[in-house]
Nucleic acid binder design. Sequence first.
DNA 1: TGAAAAGATGTTATAACATAACATCTTCGC
DNA 2: GCGAAGATGTTATGTTATAACATCTTTTCA
Lengths: 156, 156
Amino acid sequence: MDPCHEHEHCIDEALRQGEEICRSSGQRFTDIRRKVLQLVWRSHKPAKAYDILEQLAEDETGAAKPPTVYRALEFLQDNGLVHRLSSLNAFIGCTHPGKQHQCYFLICRICGDVSECCSSALTRSLQNAAAQSGFTVESSCVEISGRCSRCSENPA
Amino acid sequence: MDPCHEHEHCIDEALRQGEEICRSSGQRFTDIRRKVLQLVWRSHKPAKAYDILEQLAEDETGAAKPPTVYRALEFLQDNGLVHRLSSLNAFIGCTHPGKQHQCYFLICRICGDVSECCSSALTRSLQNAAAQSGFTVESSCVEISGRCSRCSENPA
DNA sequence: TGAAAAGATGTTATAACATAACATCTTCGC
DNA sequence: GCGAAGATGTTATGTTATAACATCTTTTCA
């Protein structure tokens, strides 16, 4: 149900990039980090920390506990491999890690899919709007909820 | 420490608007709703639900419980009197309730003050960016973190 | 190589945020 | 006053997240 034809490819690519980013920055892409990244990438829907936790438990001999998952998620966030969606308390794989980017998210209320987008025009608008108040932007959280194109075509 | 000269005025104005909005829509501006709105408006910093709860307890004979506060906050949100900042799990008084608006928030990382802004240019950029993906915007959450003008002038 | 340091994970407990479900009380229209 | 609707009280629990400290693993480098 994902918009990509072969979702396996997304996952493989994400793992490859995780590996690459860690290698080049001298960090460890440990087993747990890899598994959490893989679980976040299960679909293009946001993954909840406690769901990841459950899914980890299915694989592992000893059930993982919350800090394990949150630590892995934090690591992945710090390295730009996943994003946190604060309006959903959930996490989503980053589609272009490594590249510096201010991004925004389109969250479909119907199918739940999230897509990450970049728009320099939007980034500029944001900067401008902030600048008008003399405000200096450091980071931003832009989460848009609505209907994705497929769900608009096939109304429920 | 608020950017307004007489913050009492902000509070009074907010309460007046609460009253007005309820009156014109046939809803009740009950004591609890009024008190919660007042507490949210204590400052221009975001108010946390459990802090409001504590502050209510100081006034009240019987300590309020979480649902009381969350219900009041939900009511106030539904009526456009407060906004929820999902990146902070907190609430902030709306500076221009009643008027239809897509707004965004400037959150100062230094002093904690939040200001609500509207920018039709930003709204348009957002719509455009979404439209490029065939996405229909229903609601949006735009929370910008950084340094407000005063905190930029007086760097810590 | 092997001991110290750094980094990662395990473990326990609890903090922080939020809501479901049902009981009771208050207000309003008639 | 009485019934309906709306608001609040109450109990319990669900959900999300982190602090603090113990242990294990990897790296470093003498």
